[in-house]
């Protein structure tokens, strides 16, 4: 088998862009927390952008390659190294048989993504390779990777082959890289853009202002399901009885204690807490790169601004797709 897990790290799972079409059955979407990084990693090795890749968290993951393998590492800077030498990131990279890839610890961001040419060979469950741990489906036998697990890459397509053979000619990696900064902002003091939530109007005036003026802190209770925040509590004008209804990635809900919870990739499909805000889609990748105890500020934007950001981001990813096609002609 081509890749062996020497140390799994905190929580390494196979993720793609999520399992859509089954939310009405209560099946959560899941998928990569930082989808921009996952998509770019896949494009860099010649995969379709929604292919399954590894999501690595914070520190400790170590993989051994038993075959020459084309990969790309994107996302947070987890100090990736190959046999002890700093690994080039945000570009296609040829790992030689016998080499060991290690993620030491996160110096910027929280999650890195490793895409493999040909993808990871695991079956799709309900149209997706994303790992759904609670239901024990998808990914690698429905679980996070464990020490000793081995997996295989899928068959390479023409585009994978083109990049692979060109890299063989230039000592395994290229001199250029994609600038990840516009796609994933990992600087300190990040501000996350937010649209008003469906129950925004039911919160008292003070709370409406507090959300956009005060600084919150991500607590240690922050995982793929949601981030619990610490900071000034937010309160409703009067108690509100809500029925469960749809929620989504980035929904900011307020439980009875007034402390916001931001729903992340592994959120449940429905929820019954009032929703004060909704993180815009474009900023979810930035949000995914926060670490516990990081500070977070929210800025209100309009629907026009949110959609404009979404459209520009898609255009920017498309530009990367085109320039890679020019760099590696078939």
């Amino acid at each position: 088998m081509s890749i062996q897990v020497l140390r799994p790290g905190l929580m390494t799972t196979i993720q793609d862009l999520g399992r859509y079409g089954f939310q009405k059955f209560g099946v959560l979407v899941g998928g990569a927390m930082d989808q921009h990084s996952l998509r770019i990693a896949n494009l860099l090795v010649g995969n379709k952008e929604g292919e399954g890749a590894l999501e690595v968290n914070l520190f400790g993951t170590t993989l051994q390659f038993n075959e020459d393998t084309l990969i790309a590492i994107t996302g947070g800077d987890l100090q990736a190294s190959i046999d002890g030498i700093k690994a080039p990131t945000w570009r296609p990279l040829l790992i030689r048989s016998g080499e060991v890839l290690t993620f030491t610890s996160a110096i910027k961001g929280c999650r890195a993504y490793i895409a493999f040419a040909g993808g990871i060979q695991v079956p799709e469950v309900m149209g997706s390779k994303s790992t759904y741990i609670r239901a024990q489906i998808g990914g690698f036998y429905g679980k996070a990777l464990q020490k000793g697990d081995r997996f295989e890459c899928g068959m390479m397509n023409e585009r994978n082959e083109a990049i692979f053979s060109q890299l063989q000619k230039c000592s395994g990696h290229v001199a250029w890289s994609v600038n990840g900064h516009p796609f994933v902002n990992m600087n300190q003091a990040r501000t996350i853009r937010v649209l008003r939530g469906t129950e925004y109007e039911y919160f008292d005036k003070d709370s409406q202002q507090t959300l956009f003026q005060e600084t919150y802190e991500i607590t240690s209770q922050a995982d793929r399901m949601g981030y619990r925040l610490e900071g000034p509590p937010l309160t409703l004008n009067e108690p509100l009885e809500l029925l469960s209804e749809g929620v989504t990635y980035g929904t900011i809900q307020i439980p009875p204690n007034g402390k916001p919870i931001i729903l992340m990739a592994d959120r449940q499909t429905t929820g019954g807490y009032p929703k004060i805000g909704q993180v815009i889609s474009t900023d979810l990748a930035h949000l995914a790169q926060f670490q516990p105890l990081d500070e977070i500020k929210f800025k209100e934007v309009s629907m026009e601004e949110a959609e404009y950001a979404f459209i520009n981001n898609e255009k920017a990813i498309h530009k990367i797709r085109l320039s890679l096609q020019l760099k590696f002609p078939l």
């Binding site: 749809g246 929620v247 889609s281």
Partner: peptide
Amino acid sequence: KPLGDSALI
């Protein structure tokens, strides 16, 4: 009602 920029209720 919008539920963010990619969903509505």
